[in-house]
Amino acid sequence: MLEIQNVSKIYKVKKKSVTGVDHVSLTIDNGEIFGIVGYSGAGKSSLLRCINLLEQPTDGQILIDGQDLTKLKGEQLRQARLKIGMIFQHFYLISQKTVGENIEFALKAANISKEKRNERVKELLHMVGLSDKKDVFPAQLSGGQKQRVGIARALANNPSILLCDEATSALDPTTTTSILRLLKKINRELGITIILITHEMDVVKEICDRMAIMQNGKVIEEGAVYDIFANPEKPLTQEFINSVVSFDIPPTILQNVKGRIVKILFKGDVAGEGVISDMLQQFEVRGNFLHGTIEYIQERPLGIFLMELNGQVADINRSISYMESRGVTVEVLDNVI
């Protein structure tokens, strides 16, 4: 278990103090994929770098299975870092060394014998799907392949935690998907805890179990990705969700809306179509879909629909209560959109 306890990071820039991370506390369970989302400058990268002490937190503790990393120095810290892998947006491979040598470098840090190193390099390259690239230099690889080498290097010493610093932000969408699949596979097969920071909600939606949203160095919202997608509380969170699940309705359509606009949320297994058709049959209400989508988050469906309801106010209210009684979340938006 990784516990970030009350961590702050204050930078001194030209005698001025700039708060990068502001009293952040997070608990991340073993085997979890945890996403930290925020715009650039929100402090997410600083927070991530505090975890493996690339940045020394100004205040607070980083506990991994109860051991406080902020108390470690020199050799002890180095040993602890062997068990925390890290991958980067720009990969940061040693350009003058081959793919194999780059991975071997991490193994050398753990004092592993030459024979075992060779064996492990082969194993790792196989795992990331680059078995034929051992003697190639990084410059000859594509971005996705470089990131795979980065992942192999990060996993060389069987870490318990993998930190991903915007690991897919420099990659095209197809490559991003393949890297995310690889991360997911690693998480499942090796049970490694993954903490990733990103500004792309798609990434979080794709692979994260839980997430935190950061703004001005603080965590402003935290929870299961599914719940946050279903019910984002803070404006910034909503903004991020909207980047993936957008409900922009053209003004010309809105002008013609005479009834009441409701946002209907189906979580998990609630049979969406059924509830709505039952409602329409039971009440003197006419419905008109304005927008809708079903997102699959962690393979669990999340249906979000915008609907115009026409009829008597009392009937509309009753129909809403009915839908709510069937386990559907209904939010009346009216002119809010």
Binding site: R78, Q79, M86, I94, S95, Q96, K108, A109, R153, L163
Partner: peptide
């Protein structure tokens, strides 16, 4: 970043000099 990545990997100072800085 390359130096930082090496620190993150747990490399010793000597390794960073020999295998990262000089090459």
């Amino acid at each position: 970043g390359v130096i930082e990545a090496s620190i993150a990997v747990g490399a010793t100072r000597w390794m960073i000099i020999k295998d990262v800085l000089l090459p």
